[in-house]
Design a protein around this nucleic acid. Structure first.
Length: 799
RNA sequence: GCUGGAGUGGUGGAAUGGCAUACACGUCGGUCUCAAAAACCGAUGAGGGCAACCUCGUAAGGGUUCAACUCCCUUCUCCAGCACCA
C-alpha cells in the first residue's frame, strides 16, 4: 500500500498557505538568510529545469529555517517580454491578459511542488508599481550621464523586429529565436556599463563563492588588455593615426597598417588615388554585412590598399595603409599595425596580398627563421632582433622597455583597453517598460519628471504583427506636452530591454510594496546581500553582470553600502533526457505536472536531488522516480513498528547521519545526504528504531520531502509544524567506536584486516600485526623496514 | 586559438593522499504466495581458481610517495563560454 501522497500534499499546502508559514519579517535580533532563485518568465507551465532549480533552493531554505535562521525566500515573475506580444498577435488577446493568466497558472504549479515561498512578497515586473521604479532608476542614470542616446550600427533581429544587446547575440543569432542578426544604423538608448568596467572586473575577486567558470566568463567578457597606442604619422601630412597593440615588442616588424573600413580617415586616404574606386566598393560591401557575420572566424579576411602611406615612428620607415574587414572600429583605435611574422592573421593577410615581412623575435636557442621559409607567424616568446637598440633583450623585457621608451619620446602612450561595450537597452516592442523620455522640438530630449511616473503602457495598443512598435500607433501615448515648455512634444516609443527589470528585483523583494523609492534602504540593509543565489548557467554573463552593475550604481547613489549583490552563487545543471536537453523540437519534454500526479511532489523532489549533485547535468530516469517513491514508502512503514527504546547500533548510526547530513546540506551535497539517510533507514530496518530516532530522522528529511514529513510528524503526535522544530545535533560520544577495523597493508597492498580496540597503543598494535598469520607469506620472515600507522584506519608495513 | 570544467561498474553516481565502486537503478537468486504483484533478505568491476585466495582495474603514458581516482608532468577525448579584441 502506497501512502496517499495526493491527499497529504494537498493538505499541507493548504495549511502552510493558511498559516503564512513562510512569511518573513526583518528582525535585527535574528540572523537573516536571504535565499533567492532566479525568478521565471511566466510561460504558463513550469518545466523540469524550474523544478530542479527551485527544489534545490527550497531544501536550502527549509534547512536554514530549521537551523534557526530568519529566512527570506521570495518568488516573483519576470513578466515583460516578447512571448506575450507574440501570443497577443496569434490569439488576439492583450499581452497583459495573457501574462496574468500565465502567472496564475504558474503559481498553481509552483504551489503544487510545495515550495516554501513568501508569497506576500511576490512581484511581477509588468505591474506599474514595479516598472515605475525601472523608470525612476533610468532617470537617475540619465541625470548622471549613465543613460545616453547615440546613433550607431546595432544588432537587429528581423524576426523579433527589435534591436539586441551584444550579450543577447548568441552564435550570430538572436538569443530568443536564433534568427541571424542583421546590422542597422539606429539612434538608441544605452547604459554606460563601461563606466563600471574596472570595478566589475576587480570585484570578481571578492566573489569567492561563485563557480570558477562564471567568474572566467565574466572576466573574458569584460576583456581587459594592456598595451600601447603607437602614433603613426601620415606621409606628407601632420595627421596622426594611433594604433593599439598589446605587442609593442614587435613594432620593428610592423610592415603595414590596417584601418577599419569605417575609420574616419579612410575617405581622405583614398581620395584621388588609383585605388579609390575599388576601396569605395569594398567599404560599401562590408557595411552591408552584419558585424557578427563579418567577425565569424571562418570568413576569409579581405582588404584593399588605400594608396596612402604612414611612417613607422620607431624607424621612420614608410609603410602602406590598408583597409580590411577584420579590423573592428569598436575596439582599440579602429586601426592596427600589422606584424605578419608574429601574428597569424597578419601573416595570412600579408601572404595573400604579397606584403613585406620582417622577423624581429627569434626563439631562444633556436635558429633565426627567414621570412621566405616562414610557414606561419611565430607568436611565442624569444629574443629581439632587427629591433635597433633593443636587440638581444628578451621580448618580455623589450615589451616593458619599448613601451616606456615610446612614452618618453612621445610616439606612444601606454593604454588599457576593454572589450566590454555599453549596454543597448532600447527595444522596439510594446510589452516592456516605457523609456521615460519626451522629445520636444524646442527643448530637445526632456526626461519625464519624477512626479509624472509611472509612464504607463496604454492598454489599447493595436497588435497587428506588421512590425514597428505598437506604441507608436497610440496617439494619446505619443502626443504629449513638453514638461519644460508645455509645447507639443512626442513621447519615446521604445521600451526597455527586460534585463533592466531583473537587474534589481532582488532589492525589490526586501520591501516589495515600498512606494517612495525602488526599495526601502532599511529593509535592504537588513536582508541584503543575497546569501545564496541559485539559477541557470545561461545567465552567467547577461543577468549577473547587469545586476552587479546596478548594485554598484545604487552604492554610488548611497542607497546601499555593499557592492556585490550575490554572496554565494550556485548554477544548477540542466535536466537531460536520453543525453539531450529537453526541448519542444526534440519532443523529449517530461512534464512536471504529470509526474506530480503519478508519483507526488515529494518523490519528484527526492529523485531530482538524489540523481546527481546540483551543479552537474541530470539524466531524467523515470525508474529513479519510482525508486524515490519506494523509498518514501519504506519510511512510511517504519511508523507502525516503533520500539520503546532503540539499540546502540541505530543510535550510533543516527549520530553519524546527523553529522553527515548537516555537513552535506551546508555544502549543497544533497545526493550524498540522501544516501546517508538511506543508510540510516537500512539500519532501522535491521535493528529497529524508537520514536526519538524516527523524529530526528524526519526533521533531517523534511527539507527534501516536506509534506511527507509533516504528515508523519503529526502522526507521531506533534501539534506544531515540523519546520518549527530545531535541527538535531549529534553527540560526539556516539561517534566514538570501542573497536575499529584496521586495514593492514604490506608495501601498500591490502593483505589483511584486524579488529582492535580504538585506543590501542602503537607497540601493542605492531605486536598484533606481526602475529597475524595471514601476513606471514608476505613478510617472508624478513624484518619490516618501517611501520606506517594511520590511527584507527590503517597499518602499512614496508619490507 | 584562449578560458573554465569533466573523464570511475551495465546505468546515475560515492570516495580530494590511506579498504576504489558508498547509496541507488538495473539484473540474478531466495523468502512469502495456488500464482503473480508488492514487500523483505542476499549476490552483482573484470579475469583466474574446487576453495582459502591471487592478478588486473578510476581516459592513456610517465613521475612524486610507505601509500595516488586524488598531487606533479605529457598526451588524448568530451562538454561549456569567448573568439579576426590587434
Amino acid at each position: 500500500m502506497y501512502y496517499n501522497f495526493k491527499e497529504i500534499e494537498k493538505k499541507w499546502q493548504k495549511k502552510w498557505a493558511s498559516t503564512s508559514a513562510f512569511c518573513a519579517q526583518a528582525n535585527p535580533e535574528r540572523k537573516k538568510y536571504y535565499l533567492l532563485e532566479m525568478f521565471p518568465y511566466p510561460s504558463g507551465k513550469i518545466h523540469m529545469g524550474h523544478v530542479r532549480n527551485y527544489t534545490i533552493g527550497d531544501v536550502a531554505s527549509r534547512f536554514k529555517m530549521l537551523e534557526g535562521y530568519n529566512v527570506m525566500h521570495p518568488m516573483g515573475f519576470d513578466a515583460f517580454g516578447q512571448p506575450a506580444e507574440n501570443a497577443a498577435i496569434k490569439n488576439k488577446t492583450k499581452p497583459s491578459d495573457w501574462t496574468h493568466k500565465c502567472i496564475k497558472e504558474m503559481e498553481i504549479e509552483l504551489k503544487k511542488m510545495g515550495f516554501s515561498y513568501d508569497w506576500e512578497r511576490e512581484v511581477s515586473t509588468c505591474d506599474s508599481d514595479y516598472y515605475k521604479w525601472n523608470q525612476w532608476i533610468f532617470l537617475k542614470m540619465f541625470e548622471r550621464n549613465l543613460a545616453y542616446k547615440k546613433a550607431s550600427g546595432v544588432n537587429w533581429c528581423p524576426s523579433c523586429q527589435t534591436t539586441l544587446a551584444n550579450e543577447e547575440v548568441v552564435d550570430a543569432g538572436c538569443w530568443r529565436c536564433h534568427t541571424k542578426v542583421e546590422q542597422k544604423d539606429l539612434e538608441q538608448w544605452y547604459l554606460k556599463i563601461s563606466e563600471y568596467k574596472e570595478r566589475l572586473l576587480e570585484d570578481l575577486s571578492r566573489l569567492k563563492n561563485w563557480p570558477p567558470r562564471v567568474l572566467a566568463m565574466q572576466n573574458n567578457w569584460i576583456g581587459k588588455s594592456s598595451g600601447v597606442d603607437i602614433y603613426f604619422r601620415l606621409k606628407n601630412s601632420d595627421k596622426i593615426i594611433p594604433v593599439f597593440t598589446t605587442r609593442c615588442d614587435t613594432i620593428f616588424g610592423a610592415t603595414y597598417i590596417v584601418l577599419a573600413p569605417e575609420h574616419a580617415l579612410v575617405k581622405e586616404l583614398i581620395r584621388g588615388n588609383a585605388q579609390e574606386k575599388e576601396a569605395l566598393e569594398f567599404i560599401k560591401k562590408v557595411s552591408a554585412i552584419s558585424k557578427i557575420v563579418r567577425s565569424a572566424s571562418d570568413v576569409k579576411k579581405e582588404g584593399v590598399f588605400t594608396g596612402s602611406f604612414a611612417v613607422n615612428p620607431v624607424n621612420n620607415e614608410e609603410v602602406p595603409i590598408w583597409i580590411a574587414d577584420y579590423v573592428l572600429m569598436e575596439y582599440g583605435t579602429g586601426a592596427i599595425m600589422a606584424v605578419p611574422t608574429h601574428d597569424q592573421r597578419d601573416f595570412l593577410f600579408a601572404k595573400e596580398h604579397k606584403l613585406p615581412m620582417r622577423i624581429v623575435i627569434t626563439p631562444k636557442d633556436g635558429p633565426v627563421k627567414l621570412a621566405e621559409g616562414l610557414s606561419g607567424a611565430y607568436e611565442g616568446d624569444g629574443v629581439q632582433i632587427n629591433s635597433g637598440e633593443f636587440n638581444g633583450l628578451t621580448n618580455q623585457e623589450a615589451k616593458i622597455k619599448i613601451a616606456q621608451w615610446m612614452e618618453d619620446k612621445g610616439i606612444g602612450n601606454i593604454q588599457t583597453r576593454f572589450r566590454l561595450r555599453d549596454w543597448l537597452i532600447s527595444r522596439q516592442r510594446y510589452w516592456g517598460t516605457p523609456i521615460p523620455i519626451i522629445y520636444c522640438p524646442s527643448c530637445g530630449v526632456v526626461p519625464v519628471p519624477y512626479e509624472d511616473l509611472p509612464v504607463k503602457l496604454p492598454a489599447d495598443a493595436p497588435f497587428t504583427g506588421e512590425g514597428g512598435s505598437p506604441l507608436g500607433k497610440v496617439k494619446k501615448f505619443v502626443e504629449v506636452k513638453c514638461p519644460k515648455c508645455k509645447g507639443r512634444a512626442r513621447r519615446e516609443t521604445d521600451t526597455m530591454a527586460t534585463f533592466f527589470d531583473s537587474s534589481w528585483y532582488f532589492l525589490r523583494f526586501c520591501s516589495p510594496k515600498f512606494d517612495k523609492a525602488p526599495f526601502d534602504a532599511k529593509e535592504a540593509a537588513y536582508w541584503m546581500a543575497v546569501d545564496q543565489y541559485i539559477g541557470g548557467i545561461e545567465h552567467a554573463i547577461l543577468h549577473l553582470l547587469y545586476s552587479r552593475f546596478f548594485t554598484k550604481f545604487f552604492q554610488d547613489l548611497k542607497m546601499i553600502d555593499f557592492t556585490e549583490p550575490f554572496d554565494k552563487l550556485l548554477t544548477q545543471g540542466m535536466v537531460l533526457k536520453d543525453g539531450e536537453v529537453m526541448s519542444k523540437s526534440k519532443g523529449n519534454i517530461v512534464d512536471p505536472d504529470s509526474m506530480i500526479k503519478n508519483y507526488g511532489a515529494d518523490a519528484l523532489r527526492l529523485f531530482i536531488l538524489f540523481a546527481a549533485p546540483p551543479e552537474t547535468e541530470l539524466e531524467w530516469d523515470e525508474r529513479g522516480l519510482e525508486g524515490a517513491l519506494k523509498f518514501l514508502n519504506r519510511i512510511w512503514r517504519i511508523r507502525e513498528n516503533l520500539k520503546s527504546a532503540a539499540g546502540p547500533e541505530v543510535i550510533k548510526c543516527l549520530h553519524r547521519t546527523i553529522k553527515k547530513v548537516s555537513e552535506d546540506f551546508s555544502e549543497f551535497k544533497f545526493n550524498t545526504a540522501i544516501a546517508s539517510l538511506m543508510e540510516l533507514t537500512n539500519a532501522i530496518y535491521q535493528y529497529g528504531a524508537d520514536k526519538q530516532v524516527f523524529s530526528k530522522f524526519l526533521i533531517m528529511f523534511s527539507p527534501i520531502a516536506p509534506h511527507f514529513c509533516e504528515e508523519l510528524w503529526q502522526i507521531l503526535g506533534n501539534k506544531e509544524s515540523i519546520f518549527k522544530a530545531s535541527w538535531p545535533k549529534f553527540d560526539p560520544e556516539f561517534l566514538v567506536e570501542e573497536n575499529v577495523e584496521m586495514v593492514i597493508q604490506v608495501n601498500g597492498k591490502l593483505r589483511s584486516k584486524i579488529e582492535v580496540p580504538s585506543d590501542i597503543s602503537q607497540d601493542k598494535l605492531k605486536e598484533m600485526v606481526l602475529g597475524d598469520i595471514k601476513l606471514a607469506p608476505w613478510l617472508k620472515g624478513k624484518p619490516p623496514k618501517k611501520f606506517i600507522i594511520v590511527p584507527k584506519k590503517l597499518v602499512n608495513i614496508v619490507i
